[in-house]
Design a protein around this nucleic acid. Structure first.
Lengths: 226, 226
DNA sequence: ATTACTAAGACACGAGTAT
DNA sequence: TATACTCGTGTCTTAGTAA
């Protein structure tokens, strides 16, 4: 089974709502949707189940199918790429999100990584991060777009007996005013829906931001970064 | 050549920027991207060209390929469906756009169709339309989402020797405050990027809207409409 | 009813090669 | 060098049918 066929299968299931709940469907029905026979539909689904894209439970009247996390990621990747492809070149990618408070850990890490951030980014970051919650849609676009530009990687190191992992940075402009960077720690299973932003200044103060305020992060292509 | 293969081909070309400009590529390269041989890539492209999805010019060093309007629509359709599929069920679809002034024709048409709108929508529209410019991305989502709900169709008629065509209506809530409808005339080649909104009141006055103000149109599923 | 196995057939693929 | 043709090969599909 080829990639396009997998995508097409997942796409068709997604359109029926299988991203959010189990759907009941027979192989014949699915065959109809995909324009293939019942037998082939059966094999396709078995394949998707084997590969972990779809979860299946058999019932008397067909199958219960739901797209798994793996399948969702696969589709989300395609969707993100397509969304980016449709953006006219030169257009800026803007991620909108709302300010939230982190766990307070950010400041500690920023201080530890401070000089390394300066080397990579050209500025000494304020010792605190601005946490920004983004909607899944924005998140998808953000991560896809960011992945397109070669990342600035701040390599890990050891310090006072502790190990600090790699951190990936992407340059952004905050509210079109302050240049900063989104930092993504590789080791932590960071929530995909929260971005941590560092900048030379205290962003909350400089931009007068409060929790739940909306901020715009404009992704700066690496070759344009200062 | 099957639908998924066409999509995959268009998708791969789109990722290389072929939605916005001609790209230079050889069949071998394309084969590499698609995971198929040079020969098969050649056949795939020829097929896409024959079907009008892709425009091709041969050059000494390969081909110049650009996705046609037809191809763009095909991909846009897929993208729209995927975007909708990812929206959690129950979530409202919100279209954001900015107010603009129309050509002034709107008022005339609204008056002519007025009683018919009342029958279909349950309110007598203010004799003027609010024109809203939307970005392509929003447009895609809007049209896809709207197409999902069976449209309210106001049938055409003749009046004073003129023929007035069908008009399709979709219920929306403007700025979460006023219920109205997006109206799309079937006969005119209306710009996909401008929506015309009617409501029981003068929206500009009621909501204090000026040109270039941002408005939110929340699409109301038909079964929920009052 | 379903899903899914088997086997025969269709057709897509790619090596070789023409242009 | 390209693209694209022919054709042998192999894979994927489907009909029939079992479970």
């Amino acid at each position: 089974m080829t990639t396009p066929d997998i995508w097409f299968t997942l796409y068709s299931l997604a359109r029926k709502g299988a991203l959010h709940r189990s759907i009941t469907i027979t192989t014949s029905e699915l065959g109809g949707v995909l324009g293939i026979s019942q037998q082939t539909a059966s094999r396709r689904i078995s394949y998707c189940v084997d590969e972990g894209f779809v979860a299946r439970t058999h019932t008397a009247a067909g199958m219960l199918l739901q797209i798994t996390e793996r399948g969702r990621r696969e589709l989300s990747e395609v969707l993100g790429e397509l969304e980016i492809a449709f953006v006219p070149p030169g257009d800026e990618i803007v991620i909108r999100g709302s300010v939230t408070h982190g766990l307070g850990e950010g400041a500690y890490y920023v201080e530890v990584y401070a000089t390394r951030f300066r080397e990579a980014l050209g500025f000494l970051p304020f010792s605190g991060t601005l946490n920004v919650i983004i909607r899944e849609e924005e998140s998808r676009k953000a991560t896809t777009r960011m992945r397109q530009s070669p990342p600035l990687i701040v390599h890990g190191f050891s310090y006072e007996g502790r190990t600090f992992g790699d951190v990936i940075c992407y340059r952004v402009k905050v509210d079109n005013a302050v240049e900063g960077a989104v930092v993504i720690a590789q080791r932590t299973h960071h929530s995909e829906n929260t971005l941590e932003v560092i900048a030379p200044y205290d962003l909350r103060e400089k931009l007068g931001l409060e929790d739940e305020d909306i901020v715009e992060l404009t992704v700066i292509p690496l070759h344009m970064a200062t």
